[in-house]
Nucleic acid binder design. Structure first.
Lengths: 348, 348
DNA sequence: TCCAATGTTGTTAGCGCTAACATTCCGCTT
DNA sequence: AAGCGGAATGTTAGCGCTAACAACATTGGA
């Protein structure tokens, strides 16, 4: 008698409305919106016209339930404020958009418990794929994802083992490369400012690379400093302030360093700022090197020597790998290494 | 005969499985996971134990369809790489997480057509709320959102009209405030480096504030420069490089400026870098001021004078307003102005 | 002219869950 | 012992869409 059940939500019209109005079956309407080519042009136009007239918008929630596919990707990052992540998120966004996928993001605040909670919550929405940052994850996270048989890409490192697929680069090698550059330039007393977050694989690898390369060159172990207390992490793991503090700590620990390598460009720029305040000439009195090649590295005087990473490409790859696997579930998708480059600028 | 239909997806067990196994009705299982308090402790424990044993995870897609609520928020930003946005996204993320909502994000690349496309696509997933950046939107976007009767919050400006709700601050007044500061300090020949993206309300307001304040002080119109071609925008509307170029353009246009105001801190830091390269003393030969109070403003020597904004609070507010409105659809939710502060540092 | 192959449209049976209502259970009062 | 109210649980009827298959047109070749 009335137009429908009490449970009809909001004001949306449904495929059934359009079908009735256009004088076709429900399935034909579905086809018009999902695979327009499978419907004759005449029918298609009639249905679309009716749909527009009724302000119809397909309810993808219903479609998801019926088809078992959500076209939704879950992305997990440590922090949303980190510009590294931002670049690779943009890469994913650009790929996913043209492939008609959407994504949800959540941050873990560098905590494995939160990561597990986030992954659990995401899984309830049955994403078609998941992207994780890094390759170290809690046992529970790993089991959860493996049991769900959902395609997973881990990013920013290429050192396994992986849950499923991965794209990134060899942080270990990259760190050796830039350390070697400093050594080749004649710097012998090298300090290192670590990323303050604990246990992130890619930073562990960078530190390992530094140590190995110095050992290979026959040097003393360097001074290593983590500029912030872990408790401060949540706000911003990588900060300019951390770089300044780090340099001061290094100077206290061993006054005679003549080069500083940082786990990220942001920290390195903080060091440059501190040098400026202290009147230290870069690179004459202190050489500085970073990691990441963010925009600021090229702009800050005298230019920051760094490792160029390819965050955008990592994001793009991750998305592409997921979509490929979703469409071809048996496809074997190999690790994609996006590489890195040493970029030498005025700071060394 | 077999355990179910061909259409059963993946390996997930369902509420029906848990109900059968635990010897209760489907509805009881639903209650255990949705409103645990409405079930006796004995039953709850039995059901949870069974659920865990079967690796059950409630399918929220199905729940969404049945309940007409998705607990999903759609967030639209111009760019994912912009650290302004990143801060307010983090604010939303933190609020939404504790309120058990998830969110999807998409970027428009500063294009109104893309904004409309994004909003259209999001609406198909029937989000419970939408957050837009800024208060200027295409006619179609506005109509779409109004017709959908979905709660909407617009952010970063408080000058209406609004689609629904809004939180932000008065960019116009903030720009007047920092301009007045420069005037009070005795600077008379002030250049302005605008944000290169076109037509963003908050930047229009900032420019308007600058002009009005200078007029009120009885000064000449200032030199205004937009550092990049609009074509370059998509990558990064606000860049250090843009600041450097902007200063050079200003110097060409009118060599005798003694202060520069920038539409964002990033641009202003670019100006500071360029000063350093040119050997200009800040603030003696050139005063510099920014907008935003990003972390770098406090760290870059000699400290950047700026307007502190409250991006995190804007994000938090936006999420809170949405959730309030979702729970109380008739609630009248007033504009929330988060204010701003002038922060004076060494650069002026 | 007839039939197979192809293209187009329709019918059926859910996807997994929850709102709304119905029923049962339990402890307590009278 | 009967009656009552509230708490706990169950039953019913979809939410709006799509997979799978069925049926019907249309075309062109034998």
């Amino acid at each position: 008698m009335t137009d429908g059940s009490m449970r009809r939500r909001k004001g949306w019209s449904t495929m059934a409305d359009v079908a009735r109005e256009a004088g076709v079956s429900l399935m034909t309407v579905s086809r018009v919106y999902k695979r327009p080519d499978s419907v004759s042009q005449r029918t298609r136009e009639k249905v679309l016209e009716t749909g527009n007239r009724l302000g119809f918008s397909p309810n993808s929630i219903a479609g998801n339930l019926a088809s078992g596919r959500t076209s939704m990707i879950g992305i997990v990052v440590p922090s949303l404020r980190n510009s590294n992540n931002a670049t690779s998120i943009q890469g994913m966004a650009d790929y996913l958009r043209q492939a008609s996928y959407h994504f949800m993001i959540a941050n873990t605040g560098y905590s494995m418990e939160d990561e597990t909670a986030v992954v659990k919550a995401f899984m309830q929405r049955r994403p078609d794929g998941m992207v994780l940052t890094g390759t170290r994850h809690g046992r529970e996270t790993i089991d959860l994802l493996k049991a769900a048989h959902v395609p997973v890409v881990e990013t920013w490192e290429t050192r396994g083992p992986f849950i499923d697929m991965a794209t990134g680069f060899k942080n270990y090698e990259a760190a050796r490369r830039i350390t070697r550059h400093l050594v080749d330039r004649g710097y012998r007393r090298i300090g290192y400012i670590d990323y303050p977050a604990i246990g992130l694989d890619r930073y562990i690898e960078r530190l390992r690379g530094l140590k190995e390369e110095l050992k290979a060159a026959g040097f003393e172990p360097v001074s290593i400093v983590s500029p912030l207390d872990p408790g401060d992490l949540y706000q911003d793991a990588s900060s300019f302030r951390g770089g300044s503090l780090g340099l001061r700590k290094l100077q206290e620990a061993s006054g005679d360093i003549n080069a500083v390598l940082c786990a990220s460009d942001i920290l390195a720029v903080g060091v440059l700022f501190e040098c400026q305040r202290q009147g230290l000439r870069v690179p004459d009195q202190l050489a500085v090197a970073g990691f990441g090649d963010f925009e600021i590295a090229a702009e800050v005087p005298p230019g920051l020597t760094t490792i160029r990473t390819h965050g955008y490409q990592i994001g793009w790859n991750a998305a592409e790998m997921l979509v490929t696997r979703i469409n071809q579930p048996r496809a074997e998708i190999p690790l994609r290494d996006v590489g890195y480059e040493l970029v030498v600028r005025g700071s060394s």
